[in-house]
């Protein structure tokens, strides 16, 4: 009797969240998956039939592959930059700064989350343009070898993306590093490990799960990004994300847009599977098992 009641309450408790998940996430995704195999958007009296043409179009035009590769590389660069910038920050916050200062530092990290993307990117435009804040600062420092202009370049896109996604890395790394007991490090020190060895042999491996989840949180949205490239990238700002957006917003080619989005999803799934495999191999090598 108790078992049935538990089952019943489980169903009651889980139905809203899973029902919502199915309705809000899986249903539109399913519709888009079907769309990617249709010849046209089924609205009005359009003759619609199943076709592989959208997928053929992708594979026959090599520039779509190149754009996909460009977007994947952009995701990779953004992730690496976020690790390089975020790791020291998370380390300092978790292990060095006293507790009462952490809240203030957290605020600084989280503020980009609160600001509207468009506002954030236009602010970057003011900083990065010729005669902008950064340019004037560099000139004030005394570098006079011409003016610095980053706006409307690929680098500007990376600046915008890193700024927007850095909080994910800092927060996940902070949680991972904070969980490493100080006694581990003290034990290592008592056995003669120097600061570098304590970091590289103890702290770093134990913070890896945080780094990996942070990387996944950053990599996946950045490869589909379209606002940052469009506003900051100038003529270099065409990505697979902007092409997908054009199909939906401007061109009414939802079918091809859905195809591009699904192919990107497949690429991501393959990469994640490879990453999972790699991590398992690493663990097996270290003798930890599954």
């Amino acid at each position: 009797m108790g078992r049935w009641r538990r089952l019943f309450s489980l169903i009651v408790l889980l139905t809203p969240s899973y029902g919502w998940l199915v309705f809000a996430v899986l249903a539109p995704l399913g519709i888009m998956f079907v769309f990617s195999f249709l010849s046209d958007v089924p609205i009005g009296e359009r003759a619609v039939f199943f076709t592989l043409k959208n997928y053929q179009d992708f594979f026959q035009n090599t520039f779509y592959w190149r754009l996909t590769a460009k977007s994947l590389l952009t995701g990779l660069y953004t992730t690496i930059l976020c690790i390089l910038l975020g790791y020291p920050l998370a380390l300092i916050m978790a292990k060095i700064i006293p507790h009462r200062w952490r809240t203030a530092l957290f605020m600084l990290v989280i503020v980009p989350f609160w600001s509207n993307t468009i506002v954030r990117l236009y602010s970057w435009a003011i900083v990065l343009r010729k005669g902008g804040v950064l340019d004037l600062f560099i000139q004030w420092l005394g570098f006079e070898s011409g003016s610095l202009e980053i706006l409307y370049t690929y680098q500007a896109v990376l600046v915008g993306l890193v700024h927007g996604y850095l909080p994910y890395m800092v927060l996940t790394l902070y949680i991972a590093i904070d969980r490493v007991e100080n006694s581990f490090l003290e034990a290592a020190a008592s056995l003669g490990a120097n600061a570098w060895q304590r970091f590289w042999r103890i702290l770093f491996p134990l913070s890896l799960p945080g780094m990996i989840s942070g990387s996944i949180l950053i990599f996946i949205p950045t490869i589909g990004s379209f606002v940052e490239p469009r506003l900051l990238g100038g003529r270099t700002g065409t990505m697979i994300g902007t092409i997908i957006e054009d199909q939906f917003v401007q061109l009414f080619k939802w079918n091809f847009g859905a195809t591009l989005a699904f192919l990107l999803l497949v690429v991501v799934l393959i990469l994640m599977a490879l990453l999972g495999l790699l991590l398992r191999q690493m663990r097996l090598l270290r003798g930890e098992g599954g």
Binding site: V25, L26, P28, L29, M32, I216, L217, I220, P221, G224, G241, I244, E245, F248, W254, G257, A261, F262, L264, L265, V268, L269
Partner: peptide
């Protein structure tokens, strides 16, 4: 995330 990233394109 993957689901929402894809849904987000639209």
């Amino acid at each position: 995330l993957m689901l929402s990233a894809c849904g987000g394109q639209a």
